[in-house]
Amino acid sequence: MQTIFSPAESRKYQDHPKFAGVGMAMLVAQGKSDLVSVSELVIDPGVAVPVHTHEIQADSIYIVSGQGEALVNQDWTAVGPGDHILVLPGTEHGIRNTGTSPLRLFVHHSPPLY
Rank of each mutant, 00 (worst) to 15 (best):
I4S: 05
I4M: 04
F5Q: 14
S6Y: 00
S6A: 14
P7C: 05
P7M: 04
P7Q: 07
P7T: 05
A8F: 09
A8V: 14
E9T: 10
S10I: 09
R11C: 04
R11D: 09
K12D: 09
K12F: 06
K12V: 14
Y13K: 01
D15T: 11
D15F: 10
H16A: 04
K18G: 09
F19Q: 06
A20P: 15
G21F: 03
G21V: 04
V22D: 01
V22Y: 00
G23Q: 13
G23S: 11
G23V: 01
G23H: 08
M24Q: 07
A25V: 01
M26K: 13
M26D: 12
M26I: 10
L27M: 11
V28L: 10
Q30A: 15
G31D: 15
K32V: 07
K32D: 14
K32R: 13
K32P: 01
K32L: 14
K32I: 01
D34C: 02
L35K: 15
L35V: 14
S37N: 05
S37H: 06
S37A: 13
V38Y: 00
S39E: 06
L41W: 10
L41G: 02
L41P: 00
I43M: 03
I43W: 01
D44F: 03
D44C: 06
D44T: 09
P45H: 04
G46N: 07
V47I: 15
A48C: 07
V49H: 00
P50I: 04
P50F: 01
H52G: 08
H52Q: 12
T53W: 02
H54V: 02
H54Q: 09
H54W: 05
H54M: 03
I56G: 06
Q57V: 05
Q57I: 05
A58T: 15
A58W: 11
A58M: 14
D59E: 15
S60K: 05
I61Q: 05
Y62S: 10
Y62Q: 11
I63P: 02
I63A: 01
I63H: 01
V64T: 12
S65T: 11
G66M: 08
G66R: 03
G68E: 01
E69N: 03
E69A: 07
A70V: 05
A70P: 06
V72R: 12
N73K: 14
N73I: 05
N73D: 15
N73V: 08
Q74R: 09
W76N: 04
T77A: 07
A78I: 10
A78C: 08
G80C: 06
G82A: 09
G82M: 07
G82E: 08
D83G: 00
H84K: 07
H84N: 11
H84L: 07
L86F: 12
L86D: 12
L86A: 11
G90N: 12
E92I: 06
E92S: 13
H93V: 09
G94E: 06
I95H: 08
R96G: 03
G99Y: 06
T100R: 12
L103D: 02
L103N: 04
R104W: 03
L105F: 01
F106V: 14
F106H: 09
V107I: 12
V107N: 08
H108L: 15
H108S: 13
H109D: 10
P111G: 04
P111D: 03
L113G: 00
Y114G: 15
